[in-house]
């Protein structure tokens, strides 16, 4: 990999490692990877079967990612998006196409260690072709000021027999103002999973919309959100499933753990069936940490705060 902006690279690596990631494993030449800082690509590595093609756009970068038919990658592709300045705007567009029967995982890190007035807009357009499998694990690390404004939208389409899994995790730093939207269209016998895990503190604001469109016969999908809302966090989670095809099955689930007199949280499951052979289910809960769990840990000598911390840590694993 050629690194052309050494300082920015170092800052991003330090921020990653500060949050517990082992950055060294991502910068091996056997790992397909792209590192974006601001509106520039500062690192790029393609491996056999993977074509990552970046283009500079206004205030950001567009990357076309194509995985060739039948490619099976033993090591996840690493995508690192960072911003090392304090103020600014970053626009990111990923167009991802996983060709037939390919199997690939992505490990994505979004690192904004010192931003103060910063907006990050990300749009991912994903196509998983017939029989292909794609997993995308996206973890965010923001600054401690909580002033970031982040919007991330994913539109994914999974063709016959394909599998798509997407997880969004933001649990180790302040959130700021966050909007996450995931729209998943599932074709015949396709399956998909959308997972969000977020911890809000102070006056963070969290908005999540996850939608499953079960368009294909025997398609299956799950959308699951877990939000821990502390202090004065505001959270609004909408999980949607549309059962549009016979024998399709969808499940939406939202669990919100609250702690703090001023939290303001809401969850709304929306299920709509337009084919009477489709089946949809939902689960939702909002509330404090389970009392019996707390008492079990407190009976071992942990204070209520220590017990709560351990429980939340587990939930957000």
């Amino acid at each position: 990999m050629s690194i052309n902006v050494t300082n920015e690279y170092k800052e991003l690596v330090e921020a990653l490692e500060k949050n517990g990631a082992d950055a060294s494993k991502y910068f091996d030449k056997r790992v397909a990877s792209i590192i974006i800082s601001g509106n520039r690509v500062i690192g790029l590595n393609n491996v056999k079967g993977v074509k990552l093609t970046p283009t500079q756009i206004e205030n950001g970068v567009k990357v076309d990612m194509e995985i060739e038919e039948g490619t099976i990658l033993p090591i996840p592709i690493h995508v690192c998006t960072g911003y090392v300045e304090k103020k600014g705007l970053q626009n990111i567009v990923f167009n991802i196409r996983i060709r037939k029967n390919a199997k690939v995982k992505f490990t994505a890190h979004c690192v904004f260690p010192q931003v103060e007035e910063f907006t990050h807009n990300a749009i991912s357009n994903v196509i998983v072709e017939e029989g292909a499998i794609m997993e995308y694990a996206d973890e965010h690390f923001h600054s401690d000021l909580g002033t970031i404004n982040l919007r991330t939208i994913t539109n994914a389409k999974v063709e016959k027999g394909g599998i798509y899994k997407n997880s969004f995790t933001l649990t180790k730093t302040r959130v700021g103002k966050l909007y996450v939207e995931m729209n998943l269209d599932l074709g015949e016998e396709a399956s998909g999973e959308l997972v969000s895990k977020i911890k809000g503190t102070k006056d963070d604001s969290i908005e999540i919309k996850e939608a499953l469109n079960l368009n294909g016969v025997r398609s299956r999908g799950i959308a699951k959100s877990t939000v821990v809302a502390l202090d004065e966090t505001k959270a609004n989670i909408v999980n949607i499933a549309y059962g549009n095809a016979p024998y399709s099955f969808g499940h939406v689930e939202c669990n919100e753990i609250t702690k703090g007199d001023k939290v303001d949280v809401k969850t709304e499951p929306i299920l709509k069936v337009v084919n009477d052979l489709a089946e949809l289910t939902h689960e939702a809960s909002i509330g404090r940490v389970n009392r019996r769990q707390l008492e079990t840990l407190m009976a071992k000598g942990l204070t209520e705060d220590e017990a709560t911390e351990l429980i939340i840590k587990g939930i957000l694993q």
Binding site: N290, Q293, T296, G301, K313, G314, I315, Q317
Partner: peptide
Amino acid sequence: GITLVFQEPPRFEGI
């Protein structure tokens, strides 16, 4: 030094 094992101890996600 006092502790208690509940008859039906709860589960803990992720631990």
